[in-house]
Design a binder for these strands. Structure first.
Lengths: 213, 213
DNA sequence: AATTTTACCTAATATCATTAGTAAAAACAA
DNA sequence: TTGTTTTTACTAATGATATTAGGTAAAATT
């Protein structure tokens, strides 16, 4: 007798998860097309050939869909920031690659970027678990930036935490302005997208980060 | 016979405008309490002791309320930025006061700040007129920053427009992060609110703006 | 074979923005 | 003053939306 790879339960669960994935994919397509807040629970059901109440088999509420996307968004974001090619280069290189990774995440995931950093949804408050994921990833980004700067061996006019936060604020500012003004242009183009390198240079010059090149 | 100060028409109009003002005030209170997207047309009517359809006498739609707040928000923002005390000081002073004015506008008008810069409302697109006001005020801010920098007489590594945009992106980034993290703390306090001066110093140092002090 | 679980359904509810149609009152013109 | 227009409000109704209640049939589990 051949051992099935999956129990029936597991097979059912897999199919369940497949539907969950499809729901999330549809949700993202909707958010990208109409804006994050325009997510329509009933319309997702219709696209799946279901009656709206049947969707509650997969998600407990519309907010639960937002929450799952929020959580996954931060996981993806964290992976992107941590697994940069240049995560081991010189401080300047690290700063540059962090900036690029941040902006590219925003460009490629406009919907998630808005959901994660701009809270565009009326009653949506991330669940405790999702919030923990979010804070963890952000703290890691801040820590990494601080570490890169520490490695530079220069004396900054601010603490490492403040330095990391200044970089984060600038990354966010440039990216948000870029997405608001030229959402269709890739990073590096457009009024604000073009500013990425200049923004990095600002930190490099002000903090004299080249000294250890 | 005593000449009335106002014609009946004018008196009626004044009462009309008073109701309009009250509607906007209620709307802002709601947005501040529950978030920009939580504005509830019916609830405004109820607070005024009206039936919801009667509100259409004063605003053509819910979006029209958003639009008026958006327009006024940019007007107030422009006034604040232009009428800074230090709008005539040294370049460094101007940069500092611009940063402060921007952040304080955000802190005192969180609801408008979100509405104006973050577009947190599903279908809301500013009317052509409001959009013109908005773009005009932003262009003026950029121009003013550029002029202040030009006055410094230094050679920047970027164009004046790019320099203005970098400052705008940084102001936005720090303010948005501050409002997201410590909305209750005034400018100057909190993890990001504290960074205002450091952010200004970044530009001053990188661009050597003190030379003309 | 008996049971539990899962995935779906229909019907109904509550909340919203908004439209249609109307009535009273105020403003105005004659 | 009288007749007309404009303004302000109403009730009733509609359509979209998220969600709940309650049920059914098939599949999975015991």
């Amino acid at each position: 007798m051949i051992e099935p790879i999956l129990t029936r339960r597991q097979r059912q669960r897999r199919q369940h998860e497949e539907v969950v994935e499809e729901i999330l994919a549809i949700a993202r397509r909707m958010m990208q097309a109409e804006g994050v807040a325009a997510l329509n629970f009933n319309a997702i059901a219709r696209q799946l050939g279901m009656q709206p109440p049947s969707l509650y088999t997969y998600f407990a509420s519309k907010e639960a869909i937002y929450d799952e996307l929020f959580r996954r968004g931060y996981l993806t974001f964290g992976q992107r920031m941590n697994q940069r090619p240049a995560a081991t280069g010189s401080p300047v290189e690290q700063l540059r690659s962090a900036f690029l990774a941040y902006m590219e995440f925003g460009y490629e995931n406009r919907d998630l970027f808005e959901l994660m950093f701009q809270r565009p949804v009326p009653g949506f408050t991330p669940s405790a678990e999702s919030m923990a994921v979010s804070l963890g990833q952000l703290a890691e980004a801040q820590r990494q930036l601080g570490a890169a700067l520490a490695q530079a061996g220069v004396t900054l006019p601010v603490s490492l935490e403040e330095a990391g936060d200044l970089v984060i604020a600038m990354m966010y500012g440039v990216t948000a302005m870029h997405l608001a003004n030229n959402p269709e242009l890739p990073v590096g183009e457009g009024r604000f997208g073009r500013l990425a390198d200049h923004a990095v240079d600002l930190f490099v010059t002000a903090w004299q980060l080249e000294r250890v090149e």
